[in-house]
């Protein structure tokens, strides 16, 4: 297990390889094949967005990256997915460790029914990042600040997290993910339940977080993908149709299907 921990950044920098890679990934739900032969690289400190019509498998792929599919009955993943060149599906790898390094933010804000403070402090306590109260206080403040929520909630840290507005809840969930200081953050349509103003704030936030984290975001909005990401992958019916620099994909798609989707012929 320590092999993962030992795969430290300096070595990686030397090799200059992507943060995460997927090679020939197939995903099955029972008998049905949800993803077919996916090859994708996720570069460090970039935002990679996954787009495509609903049911195309983009969320499924996202959940493979921190093995959240493990909790779904009958879901099977084949092929290789690596984090810092280490296969995350190899036997003996620990999902708890993996998820501490690859965090996730969900479509619907899902704060725990606890106070705002406890929501943020949950992860650090879990992983023994901080035991002392003062350390925890710092982490909570930093995380909330990074998520752009500190000013709004600093006076009511003990209020329940479920009492915040939708956009605030989602930023709380992002702060909760940040507090563990993961290397990669996965976001599954983080703005789909939010109004346009809240969406704009989250998008801004994503752009800032790119400094410190590698981000993979699933979105159904092509504008959002264009705004926040450097690299975009287009999924269709379980296939990864096309992946390239965001600008190029939107201005000059290579594939017929991508063209169709971004011009709104289907979706």
């Amino acid at each position: 297990m320590d092999a993962v921990a030992e795969a430290e950044a300096p070595q990686r920098a030397l090799r200059n390889s992507p943060k995460m890679t997927a090679r020939q990934v197939d995903v099955y739900y029972g008998e049905t094949k949800a993803l077919k032969n996916i090859d994708l690289d996720i570069e460090e400190n970039q935002v990679t967005s996954l787009i495509g019509p609903s049911g195309c498998g983009k969320s499924t792929f996202l959940r493979c990256l921190n093995r959240m599919n493990d909790v779904i009955d009958g879901c099977r993943v084949e092929g290789d997915i690596t984090l810092d060149d280490v296969d995350i599906y190899r036997s003996g790898l620990d999902v708890v460790q993996l998820r501490a390094r690859v965090g996730m933010v969900f479509q619907k804000p899902n704060p725990f029914p606890k106070s705002i403070y406890d929501n943020i402090a949950y992860g650090p306590r879990l992983h023994g990042i901080a035991e002392a109260k003062s350390d925890l206080d710092d982490i909570v403040e930093i995380s909330l600040t990074k998520a752009g929520l500190w000013k709004e909630v600093k006076d009511r840290l003990q209020a329940p997290g479920t009492g915040l507005s939708g956009g605030q809840q989602q930023r709380l969930c992002i702060a909760r993910a940040i507090a563990v200081n993961p290397e990669v953050i996965l976001m599954d349509e983080p703005c789909s339940a939010l109004d346009p103003i809240a969406t704009a704030r989250i998008e801004e936030l994503i752009d800032e977080l790119r400094q410190n984290f590698t981000i993979v975001i699933v979105t159904h909005s092509m504008q959002q993908a264009a705004r926040v990401s450097q690299k975009t992958a287009f999924f269709h019916l379980g296939d990864l149709v096309e992946v390239s620099e965001t600008e190029q994909l939107f201005t000059n798609p290579r594939d017929q299907r991508t063209q169709g989707y971004i011009t709104g012929r289907f979706g």
Binding site: M104, N110, H127, R176
Partner: peptide, 27 residues
Amino acid sequence: VPRSLRDGAYALGATKSETIKQVIFPA
């Protein structure tokens, strides 16, 4: 207890029993 709460805890790297004890049970 909604599935999303479990997912939230798992995604932070909680083990099953930690999720149950600290998230599901209090909820």
